[in-house]
């Protein structure tokens, strides 16, 4: 019986903050951290260089987290995003290093586009495989994507024998290292992906269906939604976002490899959940995710400036997710009393 109607005895600041949702909570945490780091580091943290380096680092994890997020929203999970990104990066790298003729001219440009299209094709194929196995065979997403993850990585290793493919044409490298008006191109790409994904999720029929499926797939199916098709599309979308991450990653390193960025895999889940995505699906917004990413990046950059080990950063990220989730649980408990 949830008819708890105890009056608001103890409306602490915490619960009052809590009502604003994850974005408010994270903003306050961010504010507090900025204050602490600001005191410790002074203007160093807010220098143009520091901000720009943050803007260079954030997009990789950001795009990958976006790819994880769409799968999480639908009540699933996509463990194969990194492996997909690497396989796509290698595909693109192969085309770029083997087929791009000369250093300029029409064919030079056309082959670069071809390379990206090849990456997109591979990503679509992996997305379709994931989606089909999950939606039509009924395999749990964690297992299906674990399988495709291992398979994609295996394919990457087998094809390259673990070697790096490097040396790309300038326009590609520019995507990862260029700056337009002081803003890194990678950041622009990230923002350019966030906007349509946010619109897709919040305004399109497809987005509405994803949230509904994330909460209750069966009821959604009984309402006339072809949930299998939607699930299939979710994993294709997730794969396509992974290929975007692949492009940014390979451009930044000017190389591709079977095992780049693997440590990001579980961090993307952390970032999404920190940003208010329900790990069981149905809830979460792009705005929250962006907030979480900024928070993680500020911690990482500040620790870097303080000369802390990057591994300590990872530990703090882990602690942060437990802290914030605990806060949410606590809030719910207090909220229950209040109601």
């Amino acid at each position: 019986m949830s008819a708890d109607t105890r009056t608001a005895r103890n409306v602490s600041l915490l619960t009052r903050i809590g009502r604003g949702g994850p974005v408010t909570v994270l903003s306050l945490v961010l504010l507090a951290l900025l204050l602490i780091f600001g005191l410790l580091l002074g203007d160093q943290l807010f220098s143009v260089g520091a901000l720009q380096s943050m803007a260079f680092q954030l997009p990789e994890l950001g795009i990958l987290s976006l790819a994880m997020m769409v799968a999480l929203l639908s009540g699933g999970l996509n463990l194969s995003i990194i492996a997909t990104a690497n396989l796509c990066a290698l595909t693109m790298a192969y085309v770029l290093t083997h087929h791009v003729p000369g250093a300029e001219g029409f064919m030079w440009g056309a082959w670069q586009v071809m390379a990206v299209l090849a990456g997109i094709a591979v990503a679509t194929a992996i997305g379709l495989l994931n989606g089909a196995v999950i939606a039509y065979l009924g395999v749990s997403p964690i297992l299906a994507t674990l399988g495709t993850m291992t398979m994609c990585k295996g394919l990457s290793i087998g094809l390259t024998r673990g070697n790096v493919i490097s040396g790309f044409p300038d326009p590609i490298v520019f995507l990862g290292n260029g700056v337009i008006g002081g803003v890194p191109v990678a950041m622009i790409i990230f923002l350019a992906l966030c906007a349509p994904v946010a619109v897709l999720l919040n305004k399109s029929p497809f987005g509405h269906k994803i949230y509904m499926i994330g909460s209750n797939e069966k009821a959604t199916r009984y309402s006339g939604v072809d949930t299998r098709r939607v699930t299939l599309k979710v994993y294709v979308l997730s794969s396509l976002l992974a290929v975007a991450a692949a492009l940014v990653m390979m451009a930044r390193f000017n190389s591709a490899n079977a095992s780049y960025g693997e440590s990001y895999l579980l961090v993307t889940i952390l970032a999404a959940v920190l940003g208010g995505v329900d790990p069981f699906g149905g809830f979460g917004k792009v705005g929250g995710l962006m907030m979480a990413l900024i928070l993680l990046q500020v911690i990482s950059s500040a620790f870097n400036l303080l000369n802390f080990s990057p591994f300590l950063t990872v530990a703090i990220w882990g602690a942060l997710i437990i802290g914030v989730t605990a806060l949410a649980v606590l809030r719910e408990g207090l909220g229950g009393l209040r109601r």
Partner: peptide, 27 residues
């Protein structure tokens, strides 16, 4: 303790603790 007392899903807890244990160890 995190899983039962804070009622956080076990996968999230263990991803977080993986990072905490590992990060602190390397640090």
């Amino acid at each position: 303790i995190f899983i039962t007392k804070l009622r956080i899903s076990s996968i999230i807890v263990s991803i977080a603790t993986l990072n905490i244990f590992y990060g602190l160890l390397i640090f």
